[in-house]
Amino acid sequence: MSVDAVIEAKGVGLTFQTSDGPVRALTEVDLRVEKGDFVSFIGPSGCGKTTFLRCLAALETPTAGSLTVNGMSAEAARQARAYGYVFQAAGLYPWRTIGGNIRLPLEIMGFSKAEQAERVERVLELVDLKGFGRKYPWQLSGGMQQRASIARALAFDADILLMDEPFGALDEIVRDHLNEQLLALWARTQKTICFVTHSIPEAVYLSTKIVVMSPRPGRIADVIESPLPRTRPLDIRDSPEFIAVAHRVRDGLRAGHSYDD
């Protein structure tokens, strides 16, 4: 195992025991994510992309295979606070201000008051929400709330950012804007990002590595190393390279028989 492997999965499987019998959510997932990668997981509902992300976060425990995060088990990595997690919904506490929400992980992790304040200011600036620290979540738009939740995940400086369809509920214009900002943020912070989506353009635009998944049972259908440069203006989406990658993703999705049934 090389030093650079942030995430290494070998034969990872997860079978849920339900009252209707076992459900195989994931089978034989092999994946290697290197430091600084931006990895997208794409596939139809039920392909196990969110489940795999939750395995990385040790919110689920695989029933087969081996999984290491930062060279340790996923559970140990969770306890070491190795990652920040951004959920589908912003999930900000309505009784805390934006600043208070970002401070939440810092309070839990025992940062000093001065350091909390300094970090809150820093990440608010990072997600372009400077000056909104004293507002309550309901005073912000959906896109701003989601940015605040990203700031919350960044506040404690974990090297890994796990994002579960963070922009899924937002409209396309806001989404484009946030994608652009996310790339800028990734460039500035050098984090390793795992990003779940079901939008092909979003996956291709953001990622250095695209993991195409297919359902029943959830498995990896294709892993595409993106040939696109790391710096990507929005109009890169009209370039032939972009279209070629998008095409391959679509083929991968189709090959997984994801739309047959």
């Binding site: 919110l59 969770r78 009784w95 939440l104 992790m109 404690f156």
Partner: peptide, 24 residues
């Protein structure tokens, strides 16, 4: 989701009570 969020911070049960369950 809110409980999972606290898990990702490796928060203790007491922190979950004071910071999430009581205010909620």
């Amino acid at each position: 989701m809110q409980l999972d969020l606290l898990r990702t911070y490796n928060a203790s049960a007491g922190q979950g009570l004071w910071k999430l369950r009581f205010p909620a």
